[in-house]
Amino acid sequence: MSVVETLLVFAVIPLAIVLLFAVLTLLPGRAKKARYKPGQPWQYQPVWWEPHPLHGPAAGNHDDGPKAIGSSVYQEPQAIGSGHGSASHGATSHGSTSHGATAHGATSHGATAVGASAAQPAPVSAGPLGGARGTW
C-alpha cells in the first residue's frame, strides 16, 4: 500500500463521509430569518394580529364592518392611538370600501392603501382595565 493509497483510504474517505453528513444535516436547518436575541433592537414595523372572525369574508357577508383577511396581518396606522389599521386588500374593488365605519388604515402596499382617510373606529372605553406587565 503506497502512501497515496493510505491517505486516500484513511483520510480522504472519512473526510468525505463527514462532509456528506454535515451537508445533509446543516443545509435544511439554515435559518432564513435572523433569530431574535434579547437585547437586540427591533427594527420591524409594528404589526397587529387579530383572530379570524367566526364567519369570515369568504362566507360572503360584506356588510358588517371590517373582516379579518387571511392571516390577519395588519399594520398599525401611523397616527398614534388613532385606531386599528385594517389592510384593505386587493379585492376591495367590489364594494367593500363602502362601509362607513370601516377602518382602512394606511399600509405599506401601494395598491392596498384604499381609502386610507376613511373613519377610524373611535376608542371605546372598556371600563376598569386589568392585566399584567412583564419585562425580560
Binding site: 414595523q45 404589526v47 369568504a58 362566507a59 383577511i69 387571511g70 389592510a87 405599506s108 392596498t112
Partner: peptide, 13 residues
C-alpha cells in the same frame, strides 16, 4: 366573495 387568504404577509410586509 372576498379573498379568504392573501399572500401579503410573505412578500410586502
Amino acid at each position: 366573495t372576498a379573498a379568504a387568504r392573501t399572500d401579503e404577509a410573505e412578500d410586502g410586509l
